[in-house]
Design a protein around this nucleic acid. Structure first.
Lengths: 156, 156
DNA sequence: CTAAGATAGACAATGTCGTTGTCCATATAG
DNA sequence: CTATATGGACAACGACATTGTCTATCTTAG
Protein backbone atom coordinates (compact mmCIF):
# COMPACT_ATOMS: atom_id res chain seq x y z
CA UNK A 1 0.00 0.00 0.00
CA UNK A 2 1.17 3.40 -0.89
CA UNK A 3 1.33 6.67 0.91
CA UNK A 4 -1.64 8.93 1.37
CA UNK A 5 0.57 11.98 1.02
CA UNK A 6 -0.07 13.62 -2.34
CA UNK A 7 3.12 13.61 -4.33
CA UNK A 8 2.91 17.21 -5.38
CA UNK A 9 3.30 18.45 -1.83
CA UNK A 10 6.93 17.45 -1.64
CA UNK A 11 8.29 19.69 -4.40
CA UNK A 12 6.18 22.57 -3.15
CA UNK A 13 7.47 22.22 0.36
CA UNK A 14 11.03 22.07 -0.87
CA UNK A 15 10.54 25.24 -2.85
CA UNK A 16 8.76 26.99 -0.01
CA UNK A 17 11.50 25.99 2.38
CA UNK A 18 14.06 27.51 0.07
CA UNK A 19 11.96 30.62 -0.28
CA UNK A 20 11.54 31.05 3.47
CA UNK A 21 15.26 30.82 4.10
CA UNK A 22 16.20 33.16 1.28
CA UNK A 23 13.56 35.71 2.20
CA UNK A 24 14.70 35.82 5.78
CA UNK A 25 18.31 35.99 4.73
CA UNK A 26 17.68 39.06 2.65
CA UNK A 27 15.51 40.76 5.19
CA UNK A 28 18.34 40.37 7.65
CA UNK A 29 21.01 41.38 5.15
CA UNK A 30 19.08 44.56 4.42
CA UNK A 31 19.02 45.28 8.14
CA UNK A 32 22.77 44.75 8.30
CA UNK A 33 23.64 47.27 5.64
CA UNK A 34 23.23 45.23 2.48
CA UNK A 35 19.96 46.43 1.02
CA UNK A 36 21.21 45.88 -2.52
CA UNK A 37 21.90 42.20 -2.10
CA UNK A 38 19.64 40.08 -4.28
CA UNK A 39 18.85 36.39 -3.97
CA UNK A 40 21.40 35.32 -6.50
CA UNK A 41 24.21 37.59 -5.48
CA UNK A 42 25.47 35.69 -2.49
CA UNK A 43 25.30 32.62 -4.58
CA UNK A 44 27.32 34.11 -7.41
CA UNK A 45 29.83 35.61 -5.00
CA UNK A 46 30.24 32.20 -3.47
CA UNK A 47 30.84 30.81 -6.93
CA UNK A 48 33.45 33.47 -7.65
CA UNK A 49 35.25 32.51 -4.50
CA UNK A 50 38.42 33.84 -2.96
CA UNK A 51 40.53 33.12 -6.02
CA UNK A 52 38.53 35.14 -8.49
CA UNK A 53 37.24 34.10 -11.90
CA UNK A 54 36.50 35.34 -15.36
CA UNK A 55 33.15 35.84 -17.05
CA UNK A 56 33.55 32.75 -19.20
CA UNK A 57 34.52 30.57 -16.28
CA UNK A 58 31.69 31.88 -14.14
CA UNK A 59 29.20 31.37 -16.92
CA UNK A 60 30.32 27.82 -17.34
CA UNK A 61 30.09 27.17 -13.64
CA UNK A 62 26.62 28.65 -13.34
CA UNK A 63 25.34 27.18 -16.55
CA UNK A 64 24.66 30.45 -18.36
CA UNK A 65 26.23 32.19 -21.34
CA UNK A 66 29.36 34.24 -20.89
CA UNK A 67 27.35 37.34 -21.79
CA UNK A 68 24.83 36.69 -19.05
CA UNK A 69 27.63 36.11 -16.59
CA UNK A 70 29.24 39.31 -17.79
CA UNK A 71 26.08 41.29 -17.14
CA UNK A 72 25.72 39.84 -13.68
CA UNK A 73 29.32 40.79 -12.99
CA UNK A 74 28.60 44.31 -14.17
CA UNK A 75 25.76 44.57 -11.71
CA UNK A 76 27.85 43.21 -8.87
CA UNK A 77 30.56 45.67 -9.80
CA UNK A 78 28.12 48.57 -9.77
CA UNK A 79 26.92 47.61 -6.30
CA UNK A 80 30.52 47.29 -5.19
CA UNK A 81 30.73 43.60 -4.44
CA UNK A 82 33.38 42.77 -7.04
CA UNK A 83 36.07 44.50 -9.03
CA UNK A 84 37.71 43.59 -12.31
CA UNK A 85 41.42 43.63 -12.96
CA UNK A 86 43.35 42.56 -15.99
CA UNK A 87 45.31 39.35 -15.79
CA UNK A 88 49.01 40.22 -16.21
CA UNK A 89 49.67 36.80 -17.74
CA UNK A 90 46.88 37.06 -20.29
CA UNK A 91 45.81 40.52 -21.32
CA UNK A 92 42.53 39.24 -22.72
CA UNK A 93 41.27 38.01 -19.38
CA UNK A 94 39.72 40.23 -16.79
CA UNK A 95 39.80 38.66 -13.40
CA UNK A 96 36.81 39.26 -11.20
CA UNK A 97 37.65 39.51 -7.50
CA UNK A 98 35.57 40.06 -4.41
CA UNK A 99 35.94 43.45 -2.78
CA UNK A 100 35.97 43.73 1.02
CA UNK A 101 32.33 44.69 0.72
CA UNK A 102 31.69 41.53 -1.24
CA UNK A 103 33.51 39.45 1.33
CA UNK A 104 31.45 41.15 4.01
CA UNK A 105 28.16 40.14 2.48
CA UNK A 106 29.40 36.58 2.23
CA UNK A 107 30.53 36.52 5.82
CA UNK A 108 27.25 37.96 7.01
CA UNK A 109 25.28 35.58 4.82
CA UNK A 110 27.12 32.65 6.28
CA UNK A 111 26.38 33.86 9.77
CA UNK A 112 22.73 34.49 9.01
CA UNK A 113 22.32 31.13 7.35
CA UNK A 114 23.86 29.53 10.38
CA UNK A 115 21.38 31.38 12.59
CA UNK A 116 18.48 30.32 10.42
CA UNK A 117 19.69 26.77 10.49
CA UNK A 118 19.90 26.99 14.25
CA UNK A 119 16.34 28.21 14.35
CA UNK A 120 15.20 25.24 12.34
CA UNK A 121 17.24 22.99 14.57
CA UNK A 122 15.50 24.47 17.59
CA UNK A 123 12.14 23.81 16.04
CA UNK A 124 12.77 20.40 14.58
CA UNK A 125 15.58 19.10 16.72
CA UNK A 126 19.18 18.90 15.62
CA UNK A 127 18.88 15.22 14.85
CA UNK A 128 15.88 15.64 12.60
CA UNK A 129 17.51 18.51 10.78
CA UNK A 130 20.67 16.52 10.23
CA UNK A 131 18.56 13.69 8.91
CA UNK A 132 16.76 16.06 6.59
CA UNK A 133 20.03 17.37 5.22
CA UNK A 134 21.46 13.91 4.86
CA UNK A 135 18.37 12.71 3.03
CA UNK A 136 18.40 15.64 0.67
CA UNK A 137 22.05 15.02 -0.02
CA UNK A 138 21.16 11.48 -1.05
CA UNK A 139 18.59 12.51 -3.60
CA UNK A 140 20.23 15.57 -5.10
CA UNK A 141 23.24 15.89 -7.38
CA UNK A 142 26.53 16.52 -5.64
CA UNK A 143 27.59 19.63 -7.53
CA UNK A 144 25.86 22.44 -5.79
CA UNK A 145 26.56 25.30 -8.10
CA UNK A 146 25.00 24.53 -11.41
CA UNK A 147 21.63 26.15 -10.93
CA UNK A 148 20.46 26.50 -14.51
CA UNK A 149 17.49 28.52 -13.51
CA UNK A 150 17.26 30.72 -16.64
CA UNK A 151 13.98 30.24 -18.38
CA UNK A 152 12.95 27.76 -15.79
CA UNK A 153 9.77 29.51 -15.13
CA UNK A 154 9.16 30.44 -18.70
CA UNK A 155 5.72 30.01 -20.16
CA UNK A 156 6.76 28.93 -23.59
CA UNK B 1 27.94 23.62 20.71
CA UNK B 2 26.71 24.30 17.23
CA UNK B 3 26.61 22.29 14.07
CA UNK B 4 29.50 21.87 11.71
CA UNK B 5 27.14 21.83 8.76
CA UNK B 6 27.50 25.07 6.83
CA UNK B 7 24.18 26.89 6.88
CA UNK B 8 24.16 27.66 3.20
CA UNK B 9 23.92 24.02 2.25
CA UNK B 10 20.36 23.71 3.48
CA UNK B 11 18.72 26.21 1.11
CA UNK B 12 20.75 24.86 -1.79
CA UNK B 13 19.68 21.31 -1.11
CA UNK B 14 16.07 22.37 -0.85
CA UNK B 15 16.29 24.11 -4.18
CA UNK B 16 18.14 21.23 -5.80
CA UNK B 17 15.58 18.79 -4.46
CA UNK B 18 12.84 20.84 -6.03
CA UNK B 19 14.76 21.02 -9.26
CA UNK B 20 15.36 17.32 -9.43
CA UNK B 21 11.69 16.51 -8.95
CA UNK B 22 10.50 19.08 -11.44
CA UNK B 23 13.06 18.08 -14.04
CA UNK B 24 12.09 14.46 -13.84
CA UNK B 25 8.43 15.32 -13.90
CA UNK B 26 8.81 17.18 -17.15
CA UNK B 27 11.03 14.60 -18.74
CA UNK B 28 8.34 12.04 -18.03
CA UNK B 29 5.51 14.34 -19.09
CA UNK B 30 7.26 14.88 -22.41
CA UNK B 31 7.45 11.12 -22.84
CA UNK B 32 3.76 10.84 -22.11
CA UNK B 33 2.64 13.25 -24.78
CA UNK B 34 3.01 16.58 -23.04
CA UNK B 35 6.15 18.08 -24.53
CA UNK B 36 4.78 21.58 -24.21
CA UNK B 37 4.27 21.44 -20.46
CA UNK B 38 6.53 23.89 -18.64
CA UNK B 39 7.50 23.91 -15.00
CA UNK B 40 4.90 26.41 -13.97
CA UNK B 41 2.03 25.08 -16.04
CA UNK B 42 0.99 22.23 -13.84
CA UNK B 43 1.21 24.56 -10.95
CA UNK B 44 -0.99 27.17 -12.56
CA UNK B 45 -3.45 24.54 -13.74
CA UNK B 46 -3.64 23.29 -10.20
CA UNK B 47 -4.34 26.83 -9.05
CA UNK B 48 -7.08 27.22 -11.64
CA UNK B 49 -8.70 24.09 -10.34
CA UNK B 50 -11.87 22.37 -11.40
CA UNK B 51 -14.05 25.41 -10.82
CA UNK B 52 -12.23 27.76 -13.14
CA UNK B 53 -11.03 31.26 -12.44
CA UNK B 54 -10.48 34.63 -13.99
CA UNK B 55 -7.24 36.40 -14.80
CA UNK B 56 -7.59 38.78 -11.87
CA UNK B 57 -8.33 36.03 -9.41
CA UNK B 58 -5.49 33.91 -10.69
CA UNK B 59 -3.08 36.80 -10.53
CA UNK B 60 -4.04 37.47 -6.97
CA UNK B 61 -3.65 33.84 -6.03
CA UNK B 62 -0.25 33.55 -7.66
CA UNK B 63 0.98 36.92 -6.52
CA UNK B 64 1.44 38.46 -9.96
CA UNK B 65 -0.30 41.24 -11.84
CA UNK B 66 -3.50 40.50 -13.70
CA UNK B 67 -1.70 41.24 -16.95
CA UNK B 68 0.94 38.64 -16.23
CA UNK B 69 -1.74 36.15 -15.31
CA UNK B 70 -3.53 37.02 -18.52
CA UNK B 71 -0.47 36.31 -20.60
CA UNK B 72 0.11 33.00 -18.88
CA UNK B 73 -3.49 32.10 -19.59
CA UNK B 74 -3.00 33.02 -23.23
CA UNK B 75 -0.08 30.66 -23.43
CA UNK B 76 -1.98 27.87 -21.73
CA UNK B 77 -4.83 28.47 -24.14
CA UNK B 78 -2.52 28.28 -27.13
CA UNK B 79 -1.15 24.97 -25.95
CA UNK B 80 -4.66 23.74 -25.36
CA UNK B 81 -4.69 23.31 -21.61
CA UNK B 82 -7.40 25.85 -20.87
CA UNK B 83 -10.25 27.60 -22.63
CA UNK B 84 -11.96 30.87 -21.91
CA UNK B 85 -15.68 31.40 -21.84
CA UNK B 86 -17.68 34.45 -20.93
CA UNK B 87 -19.45 34.42 -17.61
CA UNK B 88 -23.21 34.62 -18.33
CA UNK B 89 -23.77 36.40 -15.03
CA UNK B 90 -21.09 39.02 -15.62
CA UNK B 91 -20.21 39.82 -19.19
CA UNK B 92 -16.97 41.44 -18.19
CA UNK B 93 -15.53 38.25 -16.77
CA UNK B 94 -13.98 35.54 -18.84
CA UNK B 95 -13.85 32.30 -16.97
CA UNK B 96 -10.81 30.14 -17.55
CA UNK B 97 -11.52 26.41 -17.44
CA UNK B 98 -9.36 23.36 -17.85
CA UNK B 99 -9.81 21.44 -21.07
CA UNK B 100 -9.69 17.63 -21.04
CA UNK B 101 -6.12 18.00 -22.20
CA UNK B 102 -5.42 20.24 -19.23
CA UNK B 103 -7.02 17.77 -16.87
CA UNK B 104 -4.93 15.04 -18.44
CA UNK B 105 -1.66 16.80 -17.72
CA UNK B 106 -2.75 17.29 -14.12
CA UNK B 107 -3.72 13.66 -13.71
CA UNK B 108 -0.46 12.51 -15.21
CA UNK B 109 1.52 14.96 -13.12
CA UNK B 110 -0.11 13.66 -9.97
CA UNK B 111 0.73 10.10 -10.95
CA UNK B 112 4.31 10.98 -11.84
CA UNK B 113 4.80 12.94 -8.64
CA UNK B 114 3.50 9.96 -6.71
CA UNK B 115 5.99 7.74 -8.52
CA UNK B 116 8.84 10.12 -7.80
CA UNK B 117 7.84 10.28 -4.18
CA UNK B 118 7.78 6.49 -4.09
CA UNK B 119 11.29 6.47 -5.51
CA UNK B 120 12.48 8.78 -2.77
CA UNK B 121 10.67 6.62 -0.24
CA UNK B 122 12.49 3.59 -1.57
CA UNK B 123 15.79 5.34 -1.23
CA UNK B 124 15.26 7.04 2.10
CA UNK B 125 12.64 4.87 3.71
CA UNK B 126 9.01 5.79 4.02
CA UNK B 127 9.43 6.88 7.61
CA UNK B 128 12.28 9.22 6.87
CA UNK B 129 10.43 10.73 3.96
CA UNK B 130 7.36 11.28 6.07
CA UNK B 131 9.51 12.92 8.69
CA UNK B 132 11.07 15.13 6.04
CA UNK B 133 7.67 16.23 4.80
CA UNK B 134 6.40 16.79 8.32
CA UNK B 135 9.45 18.85 9.19
CA UNK B 136 9.14 20.98 6.10
CA UNK B 137 5.49 21.54 6.86
CA UNK B 138 6.51 22.86 10.25
CA UNK B 139 8.90 25.46 8.89
CA UNK B 140 7.02 26.63 5.80
CA UNK B 141 3.87 28.72 5.48
CA UNK B 142 0.65 26.75 5.16
CA UNK B 143 -0.64 28.38 1.99
CA UNK B 144 1.01 26.49 -0.78
CA UNK B 145 0.09 28.54 -3.78
CA UNK B 146 1.54 31.97 -3.36
CA UNK B 147 4.85 31.50 -5.07
CA UNK B 148 5.81 35.07 -5.82
CA UNK B 149 8.70 34.05 -7.93
CA UNK B 150 8.64 36.96 -10.41
CA UNK B 151 11.79 38.94 -10.22
CA UNK B 152 13.08 36.61 -7.62
CA UNK B 153 16.20 35.94 -9.51
CA UNK B 154 16.65 39.44 -10.73
CA UNK B 155 20.04 41.03 -10.53
CA UNK B 156 18.97 44.50 -9.71
C1' DC C 1 -33.78 55.47 -12.74
C1' DT C 2 -29.61 57.53 -13.02
C1' DA C 3 -25.06 58.95 -11.86
C1' DA C 4 -20.67 57.66 -9.52
C1' DG C 5 -17.48 54.34 -8.38
C1' DA C 6 -15.44 49.71 -8.73
C1' DT C 7 -14.02 45.84 -11.41
C1' DA C 8 -12.55 42.73 -15.60
C1' DG C 9 -9.99 42.61 -19.36
C1' DA C 10 -7.26 44.47 -23.48
C1' DC C 11 -3.52 47.23 -25.16
C1' DA C 12 0.78 49.81 -25.08
C1' DA C 13 5.21 51.20 -23.20
C1' DT C 14 8.97 50.05 -20.30
C1' DG C 15 12.64 47.52 -17.82
C1' DT C 16 15.17 43.36 -16.80
C1' DC C 17 17.31 39.22 -18.08
C1' DG C 18 18.62 35.65 -20.91
C1' DT C 19 20.01 34.12 -25.66
C1' DT C 20 22.66 34.06 -30.17
C1' DG C 21 25.59 36.39 -33.46
C1' DT C 22 29.39 39.31 -34.57
C1' DC C 23 33.65 41.54 -33.92
C1' DC C 24 38.25 42.67 -32.11
C1' DA C 25 42.34 41.75 -29.36
C1' DT C 26 45.33 38.46 -27.62
C1' DA C 27 47.38 33.59 -26.91
C1' DT C 28 48.79 29.44 -28.57
C1' DA C 29 49.93 25.69 -31.92
C1' DG C 30 51.91 24.13 -36.14
C1' DC D 1 54.69 33.63 -39.30
C1' DT D 2 50.15 31.99 -39.95
C1' DA D 3 46.00 29.60 -38.47
C1' DT D 4 43.13 28.62 -34.82
C1' DA D 5 41.14 29.25 -30.30
C1' DT D 6 39.78 32.03 -26.53
C1' DG D 7 38.17 36.23 -23.62
C1' DG D 8 35.45 40.03 -23.71
C1' DA D 9 32.43 43.83 -25.66
C1' DC D 10 28.52 45.25 -28.43
C1' DA D 11 24.12 44.70 -30.80
C1' DA D 12 19.76 42.53 -31.83
C1' DC D 13 16.20 39.65 -30.36
C1' DG D 14 12.77 37.25 -27.52
C1' DA D 15 10.56 36.11 -23.00
C1' DC D 16 8.48 37.83 -19.00
C1' DA D 17 6.64 40.91 -15.62
C1' DT D 18 5.51 45.66 -14.42
C1' DT D 19 2.78 50.06 -14.52
C1' DG D 20 -0.43 52.99 -16.80
C1' DT D 21 -4.40 53.77 -19.63
C1' DC D 22 -8.76 52.78 -21.78
C1' DT D 23 -13.29 50.61 -22.54
C1' DA D 24 -17.07 47.86 -21.10
C1' DT D 25 -19.80 46.28 -17.52
C1' DC D 26 -21.48 45.63 -12.91
C1' DT D 27 -22.84 47.70 -8.41
C1' DT D 28 -24.23 51.02 -5.27
C1' DA D 29 -26.02 55.49 -3.64
C1' DG D 30 -29.11 59.08 -4.13
Amino acid sequence: MSSDVPGFELPLRLLLGFRVLIDELHAELARQGHPHARPLHGFVLQAIGAGGTTAVELGRLLGVSKQAAGKTIETLERVGYVERTVDPDDTRRKIVRLTPHGVDVLVRSARIFADLRARWAAELGEERLRALEADLRKVTPPDMFRLDMPGWFGSL
